[in-house]
Design a protein around this nucleic acid. Sequence first.
DNA 1: GGGCACATGTAAGCTGTTACATGATTAA
DNA 2: TTAATCATGTAACAGCTTACATGTGCCC
Lengths: 165, 165
Amino acid sequence: MSGYEIRRAITEVLGHFWHESFGQIYPTLAALAAEGLITARPGDRAGSTEYSITELGLAALRADLATPPVTTPPRNGVLLRTFFGPHLDPAEFAGMLDAVDAQAAARLATFAQIRSDLEAGNEHAEHIPYWLATVRAGELNALAQREWVRETRALVRPPATLPSP
Amino acid sequence: MSGYEIRRAITEVLGHFWHESFGQIYPTLAALAAEGLITARPGDRAGSTEYSITELGLAALRADLATPPVTTPPRNGVLLRTFFGPHLDPAEFAGMLDAVDAQAAARLATFAQIRSDLEAGNEHAEHIPYWLATVRAGELNALAQREWVRETRALVRPPATLPSP
DNA sequence: GGGCACATGTAAGCTGTTACATGATTAA
DNA sequence: TTAATCATGTAACAGCTTACATGTGCCC
């Protein structure tokens, strides 16, 4: 693939759990080619370069994947605002919850589409269970977020007391 | 609070959804003091400085909180490894799932402790629902992760076919 | 001819981490 | 007395984003 295609593949395929910018991709491709982990050749379009992984590169990839995953320290803006809830305008806070819910719902719709595409296709058979697992992670996460929104709405705006009989 | 205390409070109280390092905290405190958003005074211990928020600072905090949360682009090492699952040794992959599950279980235990502390105390009454909401977010997220591990184990290692009668 | 998608690459600059240097206070 | 904790601050650097500069090829 070319750098451009790699970017698109990362955005479209890994989008819900990974990202890279051009500023990372192009210098990295040059570095990987210099190390012999990938090879470069002219692409179909003028000026474009297509890359392929080498045996050495595949070994390096596998060694990297065998490394324990790095967990990035958390910076969750929604929960930070929730923590300081009493300092926010209630309507503002409710609006934020609505936005979280709507985004989670939209993600669920996307995942449903990806899931049905994956289940319909019959290529890459050995990869399918793993790809479905990443989609499932997205679904479970979105479902948990929607549940959190429901519970939080109830928590912060307790129901009015029933009129006494 | 002093910078050191702020660090500890962030780690202990906001730890599951926020973090800051000393390299951020000390320069930021100096900048905030220069802007008049906080005031500095000598602390109890020799060489320590305690800070308090000013009215101006409180207004700035509220303005910041009213801003839409910034969502950091995702880099999920576990899902990246899952996506490339067929390139991993199955035992390695299973070990990663075990680790994810164990970490989620540990987080659930921590959250249970925090929750009971929050429910027992009767200070900061107006904050309690919001603090419980952040804990609940951690719980729901950990539960979703454990469910994902269960489902993924089944997905990638399909049950042996039953012996025919 | 214009606009869009494809395509590459770099430079400026911001954010944030890590490591280090330094020292006071407290508990074992 | 010695280790741990409290406490501050900086410098080097890693990582990454954004904006910009530049150009091709296709479709309307």
